[in-house]
Write a protein that binds this DNA or RNA. Structure first.
Lengths: 144, 144
DNA sequence: GGATATTAGTTGGTTTTGTAACTAACAACA
DNA sequence: TGTTGTTAGTTACAAAACCAACTAATATCC
């Protein structure tokens, strides 16, 4: 039996997801990359702290499903840029609570707005129903 | 005016796309990574040659929207593994037509089947309508 | 209390990617 | 022809990601 030739690479879900993710990330990257010299992981950490409040590296790990070495380096970089500070915990001296500085907060809010409007412009490509289904499908795949 | 707090990171399309793409890729990666020691780019090049027939590196570039250095390295690696051969063109000696070997073809067909069945298992998570919309949205975003 | 295991976070070394400069072959046109 | 420009593909170097080993603090349990 021969291989049927009806399966195009573009229809392969992991491939299609990657192409779309790359295109979307690349476009948004410009916002934080050239304006603030941030890397994607740094932006994510910044976002987490800005959006959900101070937390520890491990908590970001869990929320963002990023590896702890990535977090560690991103935190270091953000610290250098004076976007966050570490606060030693007295209850457990291994842990440091991470907290945006005033400046970090300002950058966060700017990027937050940029993210919102970028998301809106992407979402505008679709009907509300499509957008809703897209979001739901992506969540589901991410959780698999 | 305060920043409205209704925009979750998980709803940010580039983020959701990345999370989903990573989850989907990671799972399928095992197929080619551990079984054949291939990288993602290598698998893509292999797929292109197997699915669409012999072609040059530049043609793969265009089809796969991969950078030529990635292709170059992937081709080299696949050559080392004896999965493809290069055929110098007489009309233009800069160009080499890339062609799967018999072994390369066998690996391709195995991975092709693995991809099909993986895709099917992912797609089974959704209704046909959802799957259709998902695919269409992803294509659209990738082309932006 | 003290040995052992766990957890938080960092560091070092290797892989992989990204970017830009490069070589070689061809094309265009004076 | 010969100068200039373009295209195919490679290579070299820098940036980033990945993985495994590490330190330091805490928890467990005898």
């Amino acid at each position: 039996m021969e291989t049927p030739d009806d399966f195009d690479l573009r229809d392969f879900l992991p491939y299609a997801l990657n192409q779309a993710a790359e295109a979307a990330s690349l476009a948004f990257q410009k916002q934080y990359r050239v304006r603030y010299g941030m890397l994607r992981t740094e932006w994510r950490v910044l976002f987490h702290l800005g959006r959900y409040g101070p937390m520890t590296a491990t908590q970001i790990c869990a929320r963002a499903s990023l590896h702890k070495t990535k977090i560690s380096r991103a935190v270091h970089a953000l610290e250098q840029k004076r976007y966050l500070t570490r606060m030693a915990q007295e209850t457990d001296r291994r842990v440091e609570e991470l907290c945006l500085t005033r400046q970090g907060g300002i950058v966060y809010r700017e990027l937050y707005e940029a993210a919102r409007s970028y998301d809106a412009s992407l979402s505008a490509q679709f009907t509300p129903q499509e957008r809703e289904i897209l979001g739901r499908c992506l969540h589901k795949i991410a959780r698999l």
